[in-house]
Design a protein around this nucleic acid. Sequence first.
DNA 1: ATTAATATTAAACGGTTGTTTTAAACTTGG
DNA 2: CCAAGTTTAAAACAACCGTTTAATATTAAT
Lengths: 231, 231
Amino acid sequence: MSEEKQKTKDRLLDAAENLFASKGFDDVSIRELAAAADVNVAAVNYHFQGKENLFQQVILRRFVVQRDNTLKALENILSDASNKPDIALVIQTLVEEYLKGTLSSPGGGSFMLLVAREMQSQNHHGSTTFFKEMVMPVFQAYSMALMDVRPCLRQEQINWILASIVGQIHHFIMRWHKKKSFDAQSEEVQIMVRVFPALGLSVDDYITQVTNHITAFSTAAIDSLYPEVSP
Amino acid sequence: MSEEKQKTKDRLLDAAENLFASKGFDDVSIRELAAAADVNVAAVNYHFQGKENLFQQVILRRFVVQRDNTLKALENILSDASNKPDIALVIQTLVEEYLKGTLSSPGGGSFMLLVAREMQSQNHHGSTTFFKEMVMPVFQAYSMALMDVRPCLRQEQINWILASIVGQIHHFIMRWHKKKSFDAQSEEVQIMVRVFPALGLSVDDYITQVTNHITAFSTAAIDSLYPEVSP
DNA sequence: ATTAATATTAAACGGTTGTTTTAAACTTGG
DNA sequence: CCAAGTTTAAAACAACCGTTTAATATTAAT
């Protein structure tokens, strides 16, 4: 594989990431992809053996980074000997890293919306390995962390808790993207911002507010339902 | 409109509800709809002037019932003079009615999955009136109820709380449908049930457990973050 | 019974989809 | 420099999409 021709694949991957993220798998045609990447339509099948495979490559390329970021962020707070982490910090780390990767990744992409979308669709474009390689490690690492900072928690309780947290995260991600899918001056956006003012903020401020809310909400719930046993 | 010919419209609506709910708007073709309802392909356009309109009719027919059920359930607990409702009861009513309508509606349909799916998609098949007529009344009624049982709550706090609750509800709905979209003996289902045992239960038991969790989780959070001011 | 409106049917239309073909343009190693 | 292999390009392919047409069948009313 030549040096210059690798650029074609990369341009295709970049264009695909943006288009898939903003319109979903089905609503992006190969011709649209080719035009955005400024390559021929046949290039998609030549380099990726089909649209389906291109999609998986896109997901994989980004999600590996996201997985490692999320795991690294957890390691950072756990290994910081200066202050012992508590429940709130663990949750805040998970939520913040998730939102950042989804709403304000450096590539400007909202690639993880793909994951949220496909996880909730009944098409199985991704394979089981995606779940095993990408989701499970993060899930298990944060399960461990939660058990460390709150030893009385049992595994099944943590499963319920994490489901509630991830559910909230997805919901706020979807709200943001739903708003962005309309014209900024449209009546729909006006209503949405009026009902939920945080949607009128910048991405970073939105992430901050949502992170603070989910963290406070979930931490309060856990502290109340599963209080720390006094030493 | 003749008596017998109304049956054609109804058969089409029923078939559309099931198919749309299980595959989404884009993944259902008119020919597929016609075959399932045992009518000609042209019948869709003849009776409903297009696929888009049929979809909206499907949503409307069911969601009016769901909206009224949800509002009626709230009225019931509010007007029951024998025991004054608390936060937990209001939340439980919302969650339970939502889940029942989505996962075990009498028609066997999972029509409200449609709403969840379309709310989270970036296509705007439904109109703004759907939001105003169907979502807002329920939202406002439950906002009022929460203010009644916990007067210290301000509107914006309620918005955040309801977002967290609805986010959790949607997530558990999606988990259930995701599981149902696989073969019962598939490896995927085995993994899902192992990680989250509640998915192995019957629908009704699943609804009960999820309702209890979301109610307990959210009530604990609210009680801790916004405690009742002592009289 | 005849007429007019309504409902159903099979066939076709124009368009888009993902993919493949065929050939020309490159890059690269001897 | 040239032949071998790799990458691009335009065009065609087969399948499917939502919709429409035009003819037929059914119903309702006079």
